[in-house]
Design a protein around this nucleic acid. Structure first.
Lengths: 97, 97
DNA sequence: ATGTGTTTTGACAAAACTGGTCAAAAGTAA
DNA sequence: TTACTTTTGACCAGTTTTGTCAAAACACAT
């Protein structure tokens, strides 16, 4: 289960790019990209999509990685995680209709 | 699937209390409690526990309601919700060990 | 309709949190 | 050491969240 950071780091390394280069092309400070890759900071949705486009990654997959990072982070020190996820699932289902 | 607000409103009504009274005893502004009950505002974890104690509700149940409200809210306009929840589950499992 | 009480709403300020910038520190390899 | 990349942390600005308050809306008697 890859996190957003893992995915974009791998993508960058596969293309043999330096942070500096990605930063210049994407117009995002390299410090921030470094933090994204390490999971220190959460990107915005727009940034996620920007990365998907830049690295030509599957948009949906990257969004799922990013959102699930966030959810997992919110629940990280809750031993109620299972129950919460099930309850959330119900609530989302209900909202849809 | 009850939300946090539903639960504490029901608890208050069952005890026949007014917002004013709860607010005074809990030392939380009644406007805020009103908003909690209506789901307009999200309480902090400390407040959730305070409500559990005050109304003598099951702590865990109330936390689950509150956290799942939050998760459902974050994912409300994502049609990837299912995938996200599954991915989050994996990530949490992984973190635990 | 008026009066008495409750609940909801919205404006406001203070505090907390985010997101970005930059430069220095740390790491890597020659 | 030198030359380079990556990571860290301090700082600022802008946004979001939180709490306070009073007025508006609501309910329901009389």
């Amino acid at each position: 289960m890859n996190s957003f950071g893992d995915i974009i780091r791998k993508a960058r390394e596969e293309k043999g790019l330096f942070l500096r280069q990605v930063a210049a092309e994407m117009e995002i400070d390299q410090a921030i990209i470094s933090k994204f890759e390490r999971g220190d900071r959460k990107p915005t949705k727009e940034q996620v999509l920007k990365f998907a486009k830049f690295y030509k990654l599957d948009k949906e997959e990257l969004l799922v990685a990013w959102l699930s990072d966030k959810v997992a982070y919110d629940l990280q020190d809750e031993n109620l995680a299972d129950k919460v996820l099930k309850a959330a699932e119900q609530k989302i289902k209900y909202k849809k209709k």
